[in-house]
Every structure is written in structure tokens, then in C-alpha cells.
Nucleic acid binder design. Sequence first.
DNA 1: ATATTGACATTTA
DNA 2: ATAAATGCCAATA
Length: 102
Amino acid sequence: MGDISLRDRCYKLIARIPRGRITTYKEVAEALGIKGYRLVGMFLSRNPRPVEIPCHRVVKSNGDVGGYIFGVEKKIELLRSEGIVMKNRKIENLQRYFFRLK
DNA sequence: ATATTGACATTTA
DNA sequence: ATAAATGCCAATA
């Protein structure tokens, strides 16, 4: 009773990321208190509400965009529309847009 | 109950 | 530089 699944906590965290800012799978995992980074990707691949839960704002630590339910191209388009500058499918300086969760 | 999965990250070759 | 191996762990089957 009252316990929220890790998955729902994950979605809650991501719902806080504002437009134009991004974070990483690693950051989300660490905020959840786990090191199984892949689990975050698993949760997001089953994102039930892509509008309220802006999972396109979660990218890889190395600047690659990572995956997306509606395709990587769509994810790139969304990020660009929010002002994220990308060079060859990669984000140059994550730091510039990084949103901390922990 | 056990086995596999995943939109990752780090280390090693 | 690229590629493979390894660690991670709740959720899913």
C-alpha cells in the first residue's frame, strides 16, 4: 500500500523536465537510486503518456539521442524544435541544457 | 518460481 | 577511432 513502483517514480521525475532542457538515462537511474541504467530505457519504451511524460528529453550520456517510441528522427525533430542544437545526430554540449534530477 | 528483456554505461581489446 | 564484453535490476513473460 502506498508504494509507488520504480517505474512510476521514473515517469514522475521525467515529467518535471522543462521544454528545452534535457537529462540522461544515467541521471534518471541515479535519481531513482539504481545503477541499472538500461532499466530506465525499458520504462521509457513503454511510456504510456508521451505528452505528459516528455521522454524525448532523455538522452544518452555520450550525446547520442537514444531511442524513441515514434522513431529517432521524430525525437531529433522534437529536440530541435525546443532549441537543442545537434550536429550529426549528436548533442554537442549536454551540459548547456542539462536538467538535474538529483 | 526462474528466465529474459531493455530507448544504457563503462571497461577492455 | 570502433567493437565486444560486462555490469546493472525491476519488469515482463
